[in-house]
Write a protein that binds this DNA or RNA. Structure first.
Length: 440
RNA sequence: GCGAUAGUAGCUCAGUUGGUUAGAGCACCGGCUUGUGGUGCCGGGGGUCGCGGGUUCGAAUCCCGUCUUUCGCCCCA
């Protein structure tokens, strides 16, 4: 017997419909926000990822040489692909560009809770707009998706941070642009590390100042309100004023979107990647435990880096299907999807073919219809109809055929109605609209 | 890549100090049932006990290796 590869999942019908439920919500809500769906190959040139993330990334990719001696990789994320697509026609695309994708991604990592080697992501990106309105639009979309899935304020929170704030405050502490990435990286990892390890990293980056920096960083990480933040930034300085202005804008906009209740100001979020430039955020289950449900931020210089000539501000986020499914499951928000037909034909032995033509008619009318593929008695067919979960049974015996009728039985309350075969579809639609069959 | 954990039917699990042909419940298929359904009763199919090697007269059971699962470390775009 063959098994799925480690970190990969099969999706038999029930799992598949749960997954599709997520996808349906992603698409519906994204369209409500006027985002356009796009798609792209899952296989890309390996260099696309090396260029963006550095050579270390190769160890985490599914990659190989194809028959044309090209180094290729299964996509581990969507952003480089998106950047390439947008850069290719940047001048002709109406701005702002609001695109989303639902797709499979691959990372060669150790499978763990909420993390596999194949997973699905919802990616939404907004390009060509540098104001905080774009960041707020994306955060509002993220919140709307979670709300539509049934999650509320008691279920999840979004930790919002800003790299510009960090850059400004680190500058004040004497952190130069050169060593800034290393310091931000250490801050990002400090969430998952012992303090001594972080101090050691900082000490290596800024000899003699590791302890000092860590003390200051901890102070900054504790900031959890707009007032505290403004107090720390102190207005008067032009740069500080701009940052304060951005925070005030995004706060006001998120309040207008009805999304602010989910937001926690939390500067401990910086995200590991060097390319983030402004607001960054991660969504977590309300308790804060577990992996991030979603994450994103602004990446104003990435297009330029990847394309070489197109410079365009951009921001975006991604939601992973595994952590999200786990979260929904634990809260009972993944109802058991049962795929059932609307109708089940029950026909006598001599009426089977006649019945199939009725089935065909019903199917063309948009009703999902099942019937027994082999000859069996009425009793057996009723049993199968019951097990199928169909709402109505269409009963066709010699009496009905003789009178050109068909009997419709509501399998939930056992009431029956006899209608002419000609009016079957109309009657079914009527029932459909009423939401049930009426007792005779 | 490192550490721990587990692996018996599709699923959840029994399986005695190593001892005939490895069991149960659920699920699946059929019969009772050729004009009224999910219940009931009866029956059936399905396992090289993760895989390979070793110890033994004899291994699901003991030993070694390996693969896979789950959890943690690393990493987390």
């Amino acid at each position: 017997m063959f098994e799925t590869l480690p970190g990969f999942r099969d999706f038999p019908p029930e799992a598949c419909s749960r997954r599709n439920h997520l996808f349906r919500v992603f698409r519906t809500v994204a369209r409500a926000f006027d985002f356009k769906e796009y798609d792209a190959p899952v296989l890309e040139p390996l260099d696309l990822y090396v260029e963006k993330s550095g050579a270390e990334i190769v160890g985490q990719l599914f990659h190989f040489e194809d028959k044309g001696n090209r180094q290729v990789a299964l996509r581990p994320e969507m952003t480089p692909t998106l950047a390439r697509m947008v850069a290719a026609s940047a001048n002709s695309l109406p701005k702002p560009i609001k695109w989303f994708n639902v797709g499979e991604h691959f990372r060669y990592e150790r499978p763990q809770k909420g993390r596999g080697r194949s997973f699905y992501q919802f990616n939404a990106d907004l390009l060509g707009e540098s104001t905080t309105a774009a960041d707020a639009e994306l955060l509002a979309l993220l919140v709307a998706i979670f709300e539509t899935l049934g999650l509320g304020v008691q279920d999840f929170k979004i930790r919002l941070s800003d790299r510009n704030t960090w850059i400004f405050l680190l500058e004040e502490l004497g952190v130069s642009e050169e060593i800034r990435p290393a310091v931000l990286n250490a801050i990002d990892k400090s969430e998952r590390r012992k303090p001594e390890q972080t101090i050691e990293s900082l000490e290596q980056t800024m000899p003699g100042k590791g302890e000092f920096l860590w003390d200051k960083i901890q102070e900054i990480k504790k900031i959890d309100s707009l007032d505290a933040l403004i107090g720390r930034l102190k207005s008067g300085n032009q740069k500080a004023d701009k940052i304060i202005q951005d925070w005030q804008n995004i706060t006001d906009l998120l309040k207008a979107h009805g999304a602010y209740a989910y937001i926690t100001i939390d500067l401990s979020i910086v995200r590991g990647l060097a390319y983030y430039t402004g607001f960054v955020y991660e969504a977590f289950e309300a308790s804060g435990k577990g992996r991030a449900l979603a994450g994103g931020g602004r990446y104003d210089h990435l297009l330029k880096k990847l394309s070489g000539n197109v410079d365009m501000p951009a921001c975006g986020f991604a939601i992973g299907d595994m952590t999200l499914s786990d979260c929904l499951e634990s809260k009972g928000l993944l109802p058991k999807y049962v795929m059932t037909p609307d109708l089940y034909l029950i026909a006598g032995l001599n009426e089977q073919k006649h019945g199939i033509s009725l089935v065909s008619q019903a199917r063309k009318g948009g009703f999902s219809t099942a019937y027994s593929l082999k000859s069996s008695g009425f009793g057996k067919q009723f049993k199968d109809a019951g097990k199928s979960g169909a709402r109505y049974a269409l009963i066709l015996g010699s009496e009905e055929v003789e009178k050109q009728n068909v009997k419709i039985k509501d399998l939930r309350n056992a009431t029956e109605t006899t209608v002419s075969q000609k009016s079957l579809l109309a009657k079914l639609e009527e029932f459909d609209a009423e939401g049930g069959i009426q007792p005779a």
